[in-house]
Computed example of a mutant assay.
Amino acid sequence: MKRPADIYLRFLQLTEAIRGLPTLPALDPLEEKILEFVARASQNKDRLSVRDMIGHGELGSPATLHGRIASMREKGWLTLSDTEDTRRKQIELTPAALRYFDKLAEALSKAAKGT
């Protein structure tokens, strides 16, 4: 029987391979944190606006956050869509970002199975 640490380390190896695939440009650590934040909100069916994200200080200053969101949009990870209030934009994952999370889930499953 494998130890949980073995499964986790195998998962890390598999995720490195996924990150090496030429699908989307790499993210820096703060962008990865933002991506995970947006993904969790999406999973909970929460509508997330730029203003909502600014309220979370751990994601950086408003200027930093705006810059990272713009960068992530250019890289193809995030998209902004209109809401009822034209001054607010909703942040969403792109189809490519969703496929990335699908690949991570597959890697976790493989690591747990030991394949």
Results as ranks from 00 to 15, higher is better:
residue 22 P to K: 10
residue 114 G to S: 10
residue 59 L to N: 01
residue 5 A to T: 13
residue 79 T to N: 11
residue 81 S to I: 07
residue 107 A to S: 02
residue 102 D to F: 04
residue 34 I to K: 00
residue 113 K to W: 11
residue 106 E to F: 01
residue 29 P to K: 00
residue 36 E to K: 14
residue 56 H to M: 11
residue 1 M to I: 00
residue 105 A to M: 07
residue 37 F to G: 02
residue 65 L to A: 04
residue 41 A to D: 04
residue 15 T to D: 07
residue 114 G to P: 09
residue 9 L to Y: 04
residue 34 I to G: 05
residue 29 P to S: 05
residue 5 A to Y: 10
residue 99 R to F: 04
residue 21 L to P: 03
residue 32 E to F: 08
residue 65 L to M: 00
residue 71 S to T: 13
residue 112 A to K: 07
residue 16 E to K: 12
residue 15 T to I: 15
residue 93 L to D: 03
residue 54 I to E: 11
residue 107 A to Q: 02
residue 108 L to K: 09
residue 27 L to V: 08
residue 63 A to Q: 09
residue 64 T to F: 01
residue 35 L to D: 03
residue 63 A to M: 05
residue 55 G to E: 05
residue 45 K to G: 09
residue 96 A to I: 08
residue 75 K to C: 01
residue 8 Y to D: 04
residue 3 R to L: 14
residue 111 A to M: 09
residue 24 L to N: 08
residue 34 I to E: 07
residue 90 Q to W: 07
residue 115 T to F: 11
residue 105 A to Y: 01
residue 108 L to Q: 03
residue 22 P to G: 06
residue 49 S to C: 07
residue 6 D to Y: 05
residue 72 M to R: 03
residue 56 H to V: 06
residue 22 P to N: 10
residue 93 L to T: 05
residue 5 A to E: 12
residue 14 L to H: 11
residue 43 Q to Y: 15
residue 68 R to L: 03
residue 70 A to F: 01
residue 115 T to M: 11
residue 99 R to E: 11
residue 95 P to I: 02
residue 112 A to H: 07
residue 27 L to H: 04
residue 82 D to A: 15
residue 32 E to D: 06
residue 109 S to K: 10
residue 96 A to Y: 06
residue 86 T to S: 15
residue 106 E to H: 07
residue 22 P to H: 10
residue 85 D to T: 06
residue 92 E to Y: 00
residue 16 E to A: 09
residue 10 R to Q: 09
residue 87 R to A: 15
residue 82 D to F: 00
residue 75 K to S: 05
residue 79 T to S: 11
residue 71 S to E: 13
residue 97 A to R: 01
residue 102 D to C: 12
residue 70 A to P: 00
residue 109 S to V: 14
residue 32 E to P: 13
residue 110 K to I: 02
residue 57 G to N: 13
residue 15 T to R: 15
residue 54 I to N: 02
residue 19 R to I: 09
residue 65 L to N: 04
residue 17 A to L: 15
residue 113 K to D: 15
residue 65 L to K: 04
residue 87 R to P: 02
residue 72 M to Y: 04
residue 54 I to R: 03
